[in-house]
Amino acid sequence: MGEAFLEVMGLNKQFGGLKAVNDVNFSVAREEILGLIGPNGAGKTTLVRLITGILKADSGSILFKKREITGKKTWDIVNRGIACTFQNMRPFRRLPIIANVMVSCLSPRAMKRGEWVKRIEAKAMDALEFAGISDMALEDASTLSQGDLKRLEVARAIATEPELLILDEPFGGLSPAETELMAKSIHRLHKGGRFGRLHSEGPAMIIIEHKLQQLMKIADRIIVLNFGTIIADGTPVEIVNNSKVIEAYLGEGEI
C-alpha cells in the first residue's frame, strides 16, 4: 500500500445513546478504490458525513494529504479535494440540470483548475457528458429518473475535480443494466485522463455499498462496518470468506 492519502483515526460519533460511528480507523491510498460495506444502519453514511464535515465528530481526527481537516467547513473540505455524493439524492429540483452542475463549477477549486476552459457552461457540460446525461442538460432536475439522479450526483461531485471521491450507494435503486453502466463510468473515472484534463490521474475513491456483490469487481480493498465499528478489512476475496462478515449479514440473506 502506498502512503496514506486520507487517514481516519479514532473517529467517534454518537446520536443520543446510539454510537453510530465507534472508534473507526482506516486509511485510503492515492491510487486506491476502497469499498465500504455494511448492513443498513451500520453507520456508513454517518462516516462519510464526518469526513466531509457535514457532521461534527465527537472525537478523533481526519488527515487529508497530511493536513488536519477535522472540524473544517464542508465547502472548505470540498475545495481541498474531497467530493461526496448524497445517498438520498439532493438535486436542486427547480434548476435545470446544467445549472445543478454549474454550482460545483463555480466553487473556487473548480474555477482555479479550469482557467483554460473559458465558459463555466462548457465545463458543466463536460461533467454531464461524462456522467452520460448531457442530452438532458436543459431539463429541470425534477424530471430525472432515479438512475439519472444518481448520475447527476456523480456529475456534480466530479465537477469540483476531486482527488478523493466518496460515492454513497451509487448503485442503490438502479436496474442491473444501469448498475453495469454506472460501474463502468466509475472505473473509467478512476483510471483518469478523461475528465478534468489538467490532472490525468483519476481520483482515489471510497465507494459505499449495502451489498458486496457490486463492489467485488471494482474495489481494490474492502472494509466492513457493523454497528459503527470496522469488523473486517481486506481484499474482496478475503471479505467474502470472512466468518464475522457472514455473521453480520446473516439476518439479511446474501452478502
Binding site: W75, C84, L95, A99, V103, L106, S107
Partner: peptide, 24 residues
C-alpha cells in the same frame, strides 16, 4: 448571472451547495 444560480441553489438546498464547494 452565475451568482444568481448559486442564490437559487441556496434556496433549494443549502447543504448541497456547501457540498459542491461553495461558501454559502
Amino acid at each position: 448571472s452565475n451568482t444568481g444560480i448559486i442564490f437559487h441553489a441556496i434556496r433549494e438546498d443549502e447543504l448541497a451547495v456547501r457540498a459542491s464547494g461553495v461558501n454559502t
